[in-house]
Structures are given as C-alpha cells and as structure tokens.
C-alpha cells in the first residue's frame, strides 16, 4: 500500500461522495433542516454515522483494512471527504454563502456530510476496479448473522435518509388510508424477501442450512423489516417529524418510510 494507491482510493471516495450525495445536496428541505433541527439530534446523528462508517469500512472501505485502527482511520477519512465535498458543492449551488452565520453554515454542511460520507465509503466499490472482491465476500461470510443485520441497517439508513427530509413522506402518510398502509407494509416485506433470497444477485445470501422458507423468513426478512422500521423511526425522529404527532400517524409515516428503508436493507449487500 503506497500513498499513490491510497490517492486513487481517495479520488474514488470523492466520486462516491458526489454521486451518492447529489440527490440530497439538491433537496431544499436538507438546507433548512441543517439549521432548524435540534442540535443534540444532529450531534447524535453524526456520531451514529461515524460508527456506521467504521462498520462499512470493515466490509468495504476504499482500501483493504487490517485492524480496527485502520477502520477508524478510514471512517474519519471518508467523513472528511464527505465534509469537503458537501461544503464545496453547497457553495457552488449557492446553498451556503459567506454572508450566513457560521452556525447556519456548519449545520448545513454537517447534515449533508452524512450521505456524502457514506457515499465516500461506498465509492471504491462502485467506482473501483473491483479488487479484493473475494476478500470482501469472505468477510461477509465470516461476519455471520450479525454482519448481515449490520449491512441491512446501513442500507436502510442510507435510503431512509435520502427520503425522510422531504415533505412528501408526511404528505403520503396523510393521504393514505389504513388499507393503503397495510398494502404498502405487505409489499415492503414481500419485496425484501424476494430481493435478497429469490433473485440471483451476486453476493446473494444463501438460505441458512436446512433453512425452510419459514425460518429464512423469520430470521432475515422479518428481522430486516424490523430494522428498516427502527431505522425509519430514528431518522424521522432525528428530523423532528415525530414531535407532537399521534402514534397512529407515526405508524403511517413508518410504513411509508419503511418501504424505501426495506429496499435499502434488501439491496445493501449489492452496494456495499
């Protein structure tokens, strides 16, 4: 490993940060959430993101890692790439300017650095030449059930985070009847199951040994959906969408956001 090869990895990280960050960089709600959301929640979100980045680095960083120290270093580097990319692009898009107070600028950049940081971490896999694929597959196998669940969580977080800031999530929840909600929930679970276990993706999870449909369904699909819902709840809470809202309405929002979240959980193995 030389600085030269690391530089290539860094360049891919910047590419990933732009590619995965661009939808939210151009989302209006993200700019206002950056300064209006609770500071404590923003801090918690950044901490959570750093932890997820450490985990993602283990499975697929922009370089092969050998120790927790390296995973932490990679997570920090990806976060730094996310911050630089966010700040530069927000500046070009005139979403931050030097006339603003530093509090506003910091809030906007910090919030955008979450998707951009995750994108930086995924950049290598998506834009790279695909080296060390075997090693990655080996790690995913070694990590076992816990690793599977972590990847689902990361995938759910990324997709839920991409949708949750928009007003549409709430609007959809408001206009749905309970029957729509039930239908969307069933559709989410079905797709989650079909995506991961029935279609022949690369890196596809083979059903657990002796795994009947039912045990696979209980072990992975239902757990995956539960993770998707929990991640959705966390993201909605982070953005203050649940404050003062009745439980029934929160349930509706969860089902709505749980749909992209479960797709994210299902396809995480492909992206990571």
């Amino acid at each position: 490993m030389t600085s030269g090869r690391y530089a290539i990895g860094l360049a891919r990280a910047f590419g990933g940060a732009i590619l995965f960050g661009i939808p939210l960089l151009m989302t209006m709600e993200m700019w206002s959430l950056g300064f209006s959301m609770g500071r404590g929640r923003l801090l918690l979100l950044l901490t959570f993101t750093l932890l997820v980045l450490v985990g993602l680095s283990y499975f697929s960083g922009f370089e092969k890692t050998f120790s927790l120290k390296e995973d932490v270093m990679d997570a920090l580097a990806a976060f730094g790439v996310g911050v630089i990319t966010s700040a530069a692009l927000l500046m070009v898009l005139a979403a931050i300017s030097l006339e603003m107070t530093w509090g506003e600028i910091v809030g906007r950049v910090a919030l955008q650095s979450v998707p951009a940081g995750i994108g930086a971490m995924l950049g290598r896999k998506q834009l790279g030449a695909g080296q060390d694929m075997d090693a990655e597959e080996e790690r995913k196998r070694e990590a076992g059930y816990g690793g599977e669940l972590f990847l689902m969580l990361a995938g759910a977080l990324f997709l839920a985070f991409n949708m949750a800031p928009t007003e549409e999530m709430i609007l959809i929840a408001f206009q749905m009847t309970p029957w729509h909600g039930l239908a969307l929930g069933v559709l989410s679970i079905t797709l989650l199951h079909v995506f991961v276990y029935s279609i022949g993706f690369s890196g596809q999870e083979s059903p657990p040994e002796g795994g009947s449909f039912l045990s696979t369904f209980l072990h992975f699909t239902l757990t995956g959906y539960a993770i998707a819902l929990l991640v959705s709840l966390y993201v909605l809470w982070t953005f203050g969408r649940t404050d003062g809202v009745s439980l029934a309405e929160i349930a509706n929002m969860l089902v709505v956001l749980g749909f992209p979240a479960s797709l994210g959980a299902a396809t995480a193995r492909l992206v990571v």
Binding site: M1, S3, Y6, E63, M73, A75, A77, G80, V83, I84
Partner: peptide, 13 residues
C-alpha cells in the same frame, strides 16, 4: 496520505 486524510477527517469531525 492515509494519515493526512484520516487526520483531516478527525479535525473536521
């Protein structure tokens, strides 16, 4: 370069 990138990331964080 890795030290530099990680160090900058730490400072930003």
């Amino acid at each position: 370069l890795e030290w530099l990138a990680a160090g900058l990331g730490l400072i930003f964080a």
